[in-house]
Write a protein that binds this DNA or RNA. Structure first.
Lengths: 115, 115
DNA sequence: CAGGATCCCGAAGGATACTG
DNA sequence: CAGTATCCTTCGGGATCCTG
């Protein structure tokens, strides 16, 4: 087998999903389509403007989402999943599903302890 | 749609994969089966003992890997993917594959810039 | 409205030394 | 061999304030 660390490309995908709000943003845009900055912000209680901006920029830099600016006052900016970004959908869904089961798994484990 | 942040379980799966060496460890154990601590260490140039131990413990705590200690001198400890941990395999492979393609994607993008 | 600029903190991770 | 224990650095992320 090839040397492992060089061979493993999991982290290249991981790097895109990692970020406290990225999975949420992606799942939201995948399901709801195009959204404005303020809509995104409203849908994610607790996120700050700075954080939302940062996460969106990083996703945009990786070509996962698209950003459209409407030159008007007040400003209007829309975000959506790019064609390329859609290729991540199966992975996100698989993780979402696995995560749901794992949450149950941990709860059962917790219950055993307290018996 | 339900409130997004509460609904999204992607991070529950993500939390297990995140850690500088976890994907590498998992991919290695998935492909090579059972390995000793020293074998793992040798296969991952750059990792420190402390880090390897930490990542293994965290994966063990999530029931993803199994740890078997042979009470002998010198010590012998073997690690392997658990039955439960195998359920992560499709996700890891999907991410590995996506990551490979994304690496190419970024290279092409880079070339365009320098033209 | 959609951000950029600063300041700050805690957790992740590296280096090194010691041990049953 | 397979770990702990300590110390130190880096960086993601929160809070707050300012602006075209």
């Amino acid at each position: 087998m090839e040397k492992v660390p060089e061979y493993c490309r999991v982290e290249d995908a991981l790097g895109i999903l990692v970020g406290k709000w990225k999975p949420v943003i992606l799942l939201y845009l995948l399901q709801e389509g195009t959204k404005r900055f303020s809509e995104l912000k409203r849908s994610m209680p607790g996120i700050t403007q700075r954080m939302l901006t940062k996460q969106l920029r990083e996703l945009e830099d990786e070509d996962i989402i698209e950003r459209v600016v409407y030159p008007q006052v007040p400003p209007k900016v829309e975000y959506s999943i790019s064609e390329y970004g859609r290729s991540l959908e199966p992975i996100l869904e698989a993780m979402h599903e696995w995560g749901s089961k794992h949450t149950l798994h941990k709860m059962e484990k917790q219950n055993q302890k307290s018996m």
